[in-house]
Every structure is written in C-alpha cells, then in structure tokens.
Computed example of a mutant assay.
Amino acid sequence: MWTNYRAIGYSRLIFTNTVSVLQVAELAAAIGGDVRPFPVLLTATDATAAHRLGQREIGTALAEHIDRSNLAARRLAAADGSVSIVATDNRSVTEVAGEVLRMTRWLDVRQGDVR
C-alpha cells in the first residue's frame, strides 16, 4: 500500500504499533526505498496506564490488561538508543502530537504541504 502513496508523492508515514520501535529495521526494509525512520515511543507511568485502562476496561479484564501493560512497558524499555521517548503523563493529545512533530522536524516543512 505504501508504494501507491509514494507513487503519488507522499513522503511521510506514521506507523502505529506498540512494538514497532523494536522492529524499526524490519519495517524500514518492508517499506523499501530511501527510508529515514524516526521511532518514537509514547510512555506513561504504571499508575497513569492503569488509570487509562480503568476508563475503558471493566471487571476481571482490567487486571489482565494492567498486567499485560506492565509487561509490555518492561519489554519496550529495551528499545535501542535510536528510539525517542515521549512521556504522555498529564499531557493532552495535542501536546504529545506537537512534541512528536517537533522531534521529527515535520513542522519545518512549508505550511500547506500535507504530504
């Protein structure tokens, strides 16, 4: 699918997947061409993650999701040094997105260029 977007002029792709920061080289190879990956890991404290999960999970499923979240956080902590970390605690989606855009320097591109 990315080949089609690239063919019509798109040059930026945001890939969202929790473990994608552990598979940067593999993802870049799958996309093909001249790829400059910029892996970003969004983080939250265990307390924040548990609170967020509590807003969408109920009953016994909540404990299971919290346990999985804690295990994933430990695994993701092993991401290599090329991964940029963005803490999300007590921040709005707009604040987090703005920080990611500044880190990637996508805001340096002419206004109106959405590709």
Score class of each variant (00 low, 15 high):
38 F>P: 00
82 S>F: 00
84 S>G: 02
100 V>C: 11
62 L>S: 09
38 F>C: 08
65 H>Q: 14
112 G>M: 04
99 E>R: 09
77 A>C: 03
81 G>F: 00
106 W>L: 13
101 L>P: 00
41 L>A: 12
30 A>G: 06
96 V>R: 03
52 R>K: 08
53 L>S: 04
73 A>H: 14
102 R>F: 01
46 D>C: 02
91 R>K: 14
77 A>Q: 11
84 S>A: 14
31 I>S: 08
63 A>M: 01
97 A>F: 05
105 R>Y: 02
75 R>K: 13
21 V>P: 02
76 L>E: 11
101 L>W: 09
5 Y>D: 09
56 R>I: 08
71 L>N: 12
52 R>W: 07
101 L>C: 07
101 L>H: 05
6 R>T: 11
86 V>N: 07
83 V>L: 08
95 E>S: 10
51 H>M: 04
55 Q>K: 06
11 S>V: 07
79 A>M: 03
13 L>A: 15
98 G>F: 03
28 A>P: 05
106 W>P: 00
7 A>W: 02
16 T>H: 10
59 G>L: 02
14 I>E: 05
98 G>N: 12
50 A>C: 01
49 A>E: 05
64 E>N: 08
83 V>Y: 06
3 T>V: 07
84 S>W: 01
49 A>R: 15
26 E>D: 14
113 D>R: 05
85 I>E: 14
15 F>T: 00
6 R>S: 14
6 R>M: 12
76 L>F: 09
31 I>F: 11
14 I>S: 06
98 G>V: 06
21 V>E: 13
18 T>V: 08
22 L>K: 08
97 A>N: 01
74 R>F: 06
107 L>K: 01
23 Q>P: 00
89 D>S: 10
20 S>Q: 01
75 R>V: 14
107 L>E: 14
21 V>M: 08
96 V>A: 07
57 E>A: 12
72 A>Q: 13
81 G>Q: 08
43 T>Q: 13
68 R>W: 06
50 A>G: 03
71 L>Q: 15
4 N>T: 11
15 F>S: 03
10 Y>I: 08
7 A>R: 13
78 A>G: 10
112 G>R: 06
9 G>C: 13
11 S>Y: 02
30 A>N: 06
43 T>Y: 07
20 S>D: 03
97 A>C: 11
44 A>K: 01
70 N>A: 14
21 V>W: 02
31 I>C: 07
96 V>N: 08
78 A>S: 14
26 E>V: 09
18 T>E: 11
70 N>S: 15
111 Q>K: 04
63 A>C: 01
76 L>T: 10
102 R>P: 00
64 E>H: 05
47 A>D: 15
74 R>M: 10
75 R>L: 15
9 G>D: 11
50 A>W: 01
53 L>V: 10
91 R>S: 02
1 M>Y: 05
79 A>V: 05
64 E>Y: 02
45 T>R: 07
105 R>L: 12
18 T>L: 14
40 V>S: 10
14 I>H: 01
72 A>R: 10
30 A>M: 11
61 A>Y: 01
26 E>W: 02
20 S>T: 08
13 L>S: 02
43 T>H: 06
112 G>V: 04
43 T>C: 10
36 R>D: 12
70 N>W: 01
89 D>R: 10
105 R>G: 08
